[in-house]
Design a protein around this nucleic acid. Sequence first.
RNA 1: GGCCCCAUGGUCAAGUGGACUAAGACACCGGUCUUUCAAGCCGGUAACCCGGGUUCGAAUCCCGGUGGGGUCACCA
Length: 494
Amino acid sequence: MYSGVRVRFAPSPTGSLHIGGARTALFNYLFARASGGSFILRLEDTDFERRLAHAEEGINQSLTWLGLDWDEGPGIGGPYGPYRQSERLDLYRQEAERLLSAGLAYHCFCTPEELAAEREEARQSGRAPRYSGRCCALTAGERSAKVAAGVKATLRLKMPGDGKTVVDDAIRGEVVFENATLDDFIVMKSNGVPTYNFACVVDDAAMRITHVIRAEEHLSNTPKQVLVYRALGYEPPVFAHVPMILAPDRAKLSKRHGATGVEEFRAQGYLPEALFNYLALLGWSPGDERELLSREEIVGEFSLAAVSRHAAIYDVQKLTWLNSQYLSSVTAARVYELALPFFRAAGLISETINPQDSEYIREVIETVRSRARTLGELADMSSYFFRDDFNYDPKGVRKVFHASGVPALLREGKEALARVEEPFDPANTEAAYRRLIEKLGVSGGALIHPTRLALTGRTVGPGLFDVIALLGKRRTLERLERAAAWIIDHVPRG
RNA sequence: GGCCCCAUGGUCAAGUGGACUAAGACACCGGUCUUUCAAGCCGGUAACCCGGGUUCGAAUCCCGGUGGGGUCACCA
């Protein structure tokens, strides 16, 4: 399928990718894939001050992990490269020169301090802070005097002053701005580097971007950008301003809201397919009641027209629910692959794994995964399958180890299990326990609960006989004996 | 403050003039299953911001309020 659609995600490498940025990238990706177009990655790295050393790699990794593969971008290149703005400075200078010689832009010699003072004054007197346009009125003589004095100039674009600029937005319809509210803004900084509103337009035009899909916070910038397109003689693209993602307190996402970065969700054990699905549902819906949608279904049904207009508050509980759904429904091979790093991080397994270990790990995962909501939980809930040095849950101790006769009961259980013939599986071990329960005339729970605590240190977990079978006879018997002895030592006889 | 956007349960959302006594999901609460905890299944609480219009009829269209958000840098 071929189409002329070209969209881009243009992050600034000033930090890691947060879920708002990820959602914007996702919608660009979905629109490109849904329309048979191209998805382009461009780095907006013109802010030398705020640029972070490894941010680019981090963003690439997060996008890749989410499965948002791009067709053109830094690293892989493409027909309209380079794809880092820092490598396109000549282009911006050429375009700026065109503006200047056409009389559409002018040099401004005001210092940042002067401008800041004017802004402050305007703010004090309750006026909108707006550049006066004073340098536009400079005579040729005044200009050369400034240059001779060594004052570095910025380049400002002249605004129409009257009339209206309308933004054609695929999600919001036509948004109209009075040109009188726009001031002559800077397109080139005094260091020869373009500002965002300029570089963005130059690149979108040069890269033949057809649809600019970005966060709503950019809507107010858009009339200025439309005016840049006009001044440069380019046709503006279709804009689509997607709603913001807000933190649970309705504020813009920031670090103080806890985990909001893609990398953090990954580290906690969220699956990329779950985050992909969740993010797609934040601001978009297939129009019916389906919630669990595969990548293919989402790509197949995505449209900008179905994107909502209001901001959404992200809800980590729903993400977690979706994650648990994926965790219990993806293939065994997939969970295994995803879970391994978490098992390693928890110190449960070593770097190298032999085939037997591998088989054992797979079995552990299969018995535990339906109860876990994240891979982090999965590793935590699996720990006693890999190590003997766990403590008994204090609440569990009070509840089930304090009953009288528990050590004897555990030793009875141990004897019963010791006599189980091969295979030492859930059916045989349960049969042995049921016989014992009947023989002793106790309730099932009276034997089962202390056994669970003895074997796992916990009061909750998978079916007890699955645990017993997985642990195997030797470890099961050892742990039962250990618990019996421990109780005698630690639980006061009452 | 100026400009811009937005407004359905706590949250995500369906809804585009009559099928709305307003869907579904998360969360919450109860029940069921069970050796525990989850999951599953069954059920429940909970919403059209307010006021005017237009219309036979408004969650839906228009206007005005209110509320929330965004933006007003030599940041992107």
